[in-house]
Amino acid sequence: MKYIFGILFTLVILFVATYFLLGLWGIHFLDAENFSKILWTTGILTLTSIILVCFVILPFFWFGQKRKI
């Protein structure tokens, strides 16, 4: 249950960060002329989060706890 809560919390943080990042660039959410910028920004943030989870969080925090010497 705590992993589901953690995933949801992370998604909320990413959505808020995306909203403020788009606002910083002057992009109004769901505006037809800026839709490609919205998709590119969301794609970059999604790719970054996947890379962080796969190469930083899982190897150092998840799998590191299961190995006991």
Rank of each mutant, 00 (worst) to 15 (best):
Thr41Val: 13
Gln65Ser: 11
Thr10Met: 08
Leu11Phe: 00
Ile4Ala: 15
Gln65Trp: 05
Leu47Glu: 04
Thr42Met: 10
Val12Gly: 00
Ala17Lys: 01
Leu30His: 04
Leu8Met: 12
Phe35Val: 10
Phe61Tyr: 08
Gly64Leu: 05
Gln65Glu: 10
Met1Cys: 12
Leu21Gly: 07
Leu14Glu: 01
Ala17Asn: 01
Arg67Trp: 05
Leu52Ser: 05
Phe5His: 12
Lys68Cys: 03
Ile57Met: 12
Phe20Leu: 14
Lys2Cys: 11
Val16Met: 11
Phe9Val: 02
Cys54Lys: 15
Ile57Gly: 07
Gln65Asn: 09
Thr18Met: 12
Ala17Arg: 02
Arg67Phe: 07
Thr10Leu: 11
Leu21Ser: 04
Leu14Asp: 00
Thr46Leu: 13
Thr41Leu: 11
Ile38Gly: 06
Leu24Ile: 09
Gly6Thr: 02
Phe55Lys: 07
Lys2Ser: 14
Leu30Glu: 04
Ile27Trp: 02
Thr46His: 05
Leu11Asn: 05
Leu58Asn: 02
Thr18Ala: 14
Leu8Cys: 09
Pro59Ser: 01
Tyr3Arg: 15
Gln65Val: 05
Leu22Asp: 03
Leu22Phe: 00
Cys54Ser: 14
Phe63Asn: 10
Gly43Phe: 12
Thr18Phe: 11
Thr18Gly: 13
Glu33Leu: 08
Pro59Lys: 08
Leu52His: 04
Tyr3Lys: 14
Gly64Phe: 00
Ile57Tyr: 15
Thr42Ala: 12
Phe15Arg: 03
Phe20Gln: 10
